[in-house]
Write a protein that binds this DNA or RNA. Structure first.
Length: 638
DNA sequence: GTAGGGTTAG
């Protein structure tokens, strides 16, 4: 650019090297397209110069200028240059530039309209560039059927084996979840280049096959010399995303070292995927924060990734502090990912006021119809105790999605409206949505709250038999709890036996134990307590339940022994005893009054609260960050 | 001799 400015100053039209020469100008615009910061300061004067010198009448110059404007984010100016181009001059390159410009700006339907217009134009024959641009618009808009039409068109011309087209086709199918078609598309290419390898890896990631993504990466690197295709920043971003999905932090760390060595660590996509990796793995938030702080050019993805990390840990204060800092920097504007993370932290913390303020921001940004946002809002209102607000958001939906329905099911279940929760589950199936693992956790917990034993057992077996979903420990846990509460302790124990050995965690044993405690089943209770303590040596739940078991039988010595063990583990400081009346019968419960508000101790009180609530026949949600000690006092004194 | 297309992260 500097060179060109000097050329303009020193040359006149009579000289051999002419600044107004279309050959020179188109190269200048092409260079500015590669680096948007280059064009904008000179855009107005260069554009005017091109008009004055009539160089803009060259289709090359006009196309290059339009492309440079579009890539600098000035779509309106790009479109003006197109419109001023005589229709007869437009060729396949200028049309393709238009299609790509519209697609990049998010106007995919307009891009496809332009593509149709190009195909209808006499004398314009679409080539692989044109098809690749059209397919990108389809892939980005998630328009599978349009994409398949375009696929058919270019297959007829034999263009589907060209690298760009094949990669775009693979992207289209992978985003639709069809990894088979994606791989087949790449397979049509002669040999895989870096982008093709990256497409394969990211196709696996997008279809939830992180393990295969990592294997593909290993295969790529192993044949690096033969293929002459070394991973680039996009490849690393994709494979690190696979590590994040599988919580493979070890491999992720090795890759972190490798990108640092190869000079990709400062690439924004790599930094963002590293932040995501560390943010998702428990206990590595500080590593995520370090990568985030070090990255120079933070965009909305970087901010969303780190905010999501704090949100997942339930650190509401830190998440909101980052959000404030992000907004102070003005740019970038928060989008659906940022706001959804913050809404989830409001849900965890049950902070209705903050949630409502975020709702206002959502409305201001016009994001309320985004599925991710809608489900986050429903979940936030449900968990913060306002089902009426959840209902409003849910009924204003423009499209159905499993996550929003599930949030409604869970919300009603947690508010003790199990019947409504179960109705919603059936309605969801009727509208044609396929329930997923989380929806089944919702419906099983509704059964649990309602004491619907037979129904719960039916749903558990329907999961695998009808919906092809393998029940996980959470599902078994619900039903073990359900059977236990109904006093069907033998069946609960049997169900635990049906779980894979490594799935039997402290939660499920504690459920059984609690059932035993409630029924005074000392033998099975002891067994369950031993297993629960094996699974979670640090946990206090087993001691709480055992203490209650002994207390309910009046075996105060043994109860005190459990209390003593808890104190030894340091999870509670002071322990008191109280009793409540359930169905005319006095039942002893332990109440733990704390001096030291550490995390594990909160869990003890939390478990106690649940026990008390269930004991008095109330199913209600206990927010994780409420003032637990005062809640206990209130409840016991009321 | 000049212009256009693919792969990435929340």
């Amino acid at each position: 650019m500097a060179l060109f400015v000097r050329l303009r100053r020193t040359s006149s039209s009579s000289r051999p090297l002419d600044a107004a020469d279309p050959f020179v100008l188109s190269l200048v615009f092409k260079a500015s397209a590669a680096d948007p910061g280059l064009l904008l300061p000179h855009a107005a004067s260069l554009h005017a110069f091109a008009v004055r010198s009539s160089a803009l009448s060259s289709v090359f110059v006009a196309t290059a200028l339009a492309d440079a404007y579009a890539k600098a984010g000035r779509l309106a100016l790009a479109l003006r240059v197109f419109d001023e181009m005589p229709a007869a001059r437009r060729n396949v390159v200028s049309w393709t530039t238009l299609v790509a410009a519209l697609s990049r700006a998010g106007r995919r339907h307009d891009a496809l309209r332009a593509f149709a217009e190009m195909r209808a134009s006499a004398g314009v024959a679409c080539d692989s560039h044109a098809y690749a641009a059209a397919l990108t618009a389809c892939a980005d808009a998630g328009m599978l059927s349009r994409g398949r039409e375009v696929h058919a068109l270019c297959a007829k011309l034999g263009l589907d084996a060209t690298p760009y087209v094949a990669n775009t086709l693979a992207t289209l199918y992978a985003r639709w979840g069809d990894v088979g078609r994606a791989l087949a598309a790449v397979g049509r290419m002669g040999s895989r280049d870096v982008a093709a390898w990256t497409t394969v890896i990211s196709s696996y990631v997008q279809t939830g096959r992180a393990k295969e993504a990592i294997e593909a990466f290993v295969a790529m690197v192993r044949n690096e010399a033969v293929n002459a295709a070394s991973p680039n920043e996009y490849t690393y971003a994709a494979v690190i995303a696979a590590c994040a999905d599988t919580s493979c932090v070890c491999l992720g760390e090795q890759l972190h070292g490798q990108v640092a060595q190869r000079g990709f660590a400062s690439a924004r996509s790599v930094a963002n995927s590293l932040v995501t990796l560390y943010a998702r793995v428990a206990g590595r938030l500080s590593a995520a924060d370090a990568v985030f702080q070090e990255s120079a050019a933070k965009d909305v993805v970087s901010w969303s990734a780190i905010i999501s990390g704090y949100a997942q840990e339930g650190l509401a204060g830190e998440a909101f502090a980052l959000f404030t800092e992000m907004r102070r920097h003005h740019c970038p504007r928060p989008n659906e990912f940022t706001l959804a993370s913050l809404l989830s932290v409001c849900a965890t913390a049950a902070t209705l006021d903050a949630g409502r303020q975020l709702h206002a921001l959502v409305m201001a940004a016009g994001l309320e119809h985004h599925a991710m946002i809608r489900s986050a809002l429903v979940d936030m209102y449900g968990k913060s105790g306002s089902m009426s607000d959840a209902d409003v958001v849910f009924s204003n939906r423009t499209k159905d999605d499993v996550v929003s329905w599930t949030a409604m099911i869970v919300g009603h279940a947690e508010h003790g409206q199990s019947k409504r929760a179960l109705e919603l589950f059936e309605e969801m199936c009727l509208v044609g949505l396929k329930p997923d693992h989380v929806a089944f956790i919702g419906v099983l917990s509704a059964c649990c709250h309602a004491g619907e034993v037979e129904l719960g057992l039916r749903y558990l077996s329907a999961m695998s038999k009808i919906y092809g979903l393998e029940p996980a420990k959470e599902h078994y846990g619900c039903v073990v709890d359900l059977l236990g509460r109904a006093g069907r302790i033998n069946e609960a124990e049997e169900l635990i036996g049906r779980m894979a050995a490594n799935e039997r965690d402290g939660v499920v044993w504690t459920s059984l134990l609690r059932a035993c405690a409630a029924r005074g089943e000392e033998e099975t209770g002891k067994k369950a307590a031993a297993r629960a303590m094996e699974a979670e040596p640090w946990g206090a739940g087993a001691h709480v339940a055992m203490a209650n078991l002994y207390a309910s039988k009046g075996q105060w010595c043994e109860a005190a022994q459990e209390r003593h063990m808890m104190k030894q583990k340091g999870v509670v400081k002071g322990v008191g005893w109280s009793s409540i009346t359930v169905g005319g019968e006095d039942r002893a419960v332990g109440v733990f009054v704390a001096g030291d508000r550490t995390h594990p101790q909160d869990n003890v009180i939390y478990e106690m609260l649940e026990l008390i609530y269930y004991g008095v026949g109330m199913a209600r949600y206990v927010p994780a960050q409420m003032n637990l000690a005062s809640e206990v006092e209130l409840l016991v004194n009321s």
